[in-house]
């Protein structure tokens, strides 16, 4: 059967997407299960044990308040590490050459990795959300906002993971960003608190943390309130998606970390 080049490229992107999804589903105890355990502990300790001592925030119980942040934390981390780890592993085993010798253009590579990484992030987020139902009853203010913010955030961090995977030269290099950048920014991004509770200087500092905007945008979808402007949150996500995509295309075009 004769196919147009575009159809062939779509087949290539689906192939890469499928391969990546099969990979993380095959090793689900390492990829999907850990976030359930970790976030359940957060719900138990911060929500149940400590949260019961904390008063409502904007009329929402503390347990319900932290649900969107914990879901988002899982989305961010899993989207990122999925792509960074998988791409670096394919470089390490040289199986990335299977892709590089193929006629698949760079957007196929970006799309295949970004969508599969985003899917893992979203699946982990959904599992964490499902666990939260055992502890509280989150309400949904606007489903559309929830979808937009979860999908965009997952894609942005999958793209970030791809940059990390491209640049990484050794296994240690793929854990530096999640450990030293993503985790602190996520914890300080309003997962467990509203920045309106912070003193002035900390509130100002918090506003330069991009993850704050992602978590608040997502939380707005649940409860209809946010510490930041929702449109600004959306624009920040679009901006990061655009910057990361441009950086990846530059690296892939140049062959950084891939071609000698």
């Amino acid at each position: 059967m004769t196919r147009s080049t575009h159809q062939q490229n779509m087949v290539a992107m689906y192939t890469l997407f499928r391969k990546e999804v099969v990979r993380f589903l095959r090793i689900w105890p390492q990829t999907l299960f850990p976030p359930i355990i970790t976030q359940s502990l957060y719900f138990l300790i911060f929500g149940k044990f400590i949260g019961s001592q904390i008063s409502d925030i904007n009329g929402v119980s503390y347990m319900a308040f932290i649900v969107p942040g914990l879901v988002m934390m899982s989305v961010i981390n899993n989207s990122y590490v999925n792509v960074a780890g998988s791409f670096f592993s394919s470089k390490f085993q040289r199986s990335v050459e299977e892709l590089l010798v193929s006629p698949a253009p760079n957007w196929v590579i970006v799309g295949g990795y970004a969508f599969s990484g985003a899917l893992r992030g979203i699946l982990c987020g959904l599992l964490v959300f499902a666990v939260s139902v055992f502890f509280t009853r989150p309400v949904i203010h606007h489903f559309g906002y929830i979808m937009v913010f979860i999908v965009l955030t997952a894609v942005v961090f999958a793209l970030g993971g791809l940059i990390n995977g491209i640049l990484a030269k050794k296994f240690d290099d793929i854990s530096i960003v999640p450990t030293f950048i993503l985790t602190p920014l996520t914890y300080l991004g309003g997962v467990f608190y509203s920045i309106s509770l912070l003193p002035g200087v900390w509130r100002t500092i918090s506003r330069v943390n991009p993850i704050l905007y992602m978590i608040n945008g997502f939380r707005y979808g649940f409860y209809g309130f946010s510490d930041v402007n929702i449109l600004l949150s959306f624009l920040i996500l679009i901006l990061f998606a655009a910057i990361f995509t441009a950086v990846i295309f530059y690296f892939l075009g140049k062959g950084t970390g891939l071609r000698s």
């Binding site: 689906y14 085993q93 199986s95 299977e98």
Partner: peptide, 27 residues
Amino acid sequence: PQEMNFNQFEKVEDIVLTEAGYFGIPR
């Protein structure tokens, strides 16, 4: 190539079919 460059954990059939996919041939 001169050196092995496939995923050591992937199944034989999947390695071949995935490469076909990268070249635009559905599985």
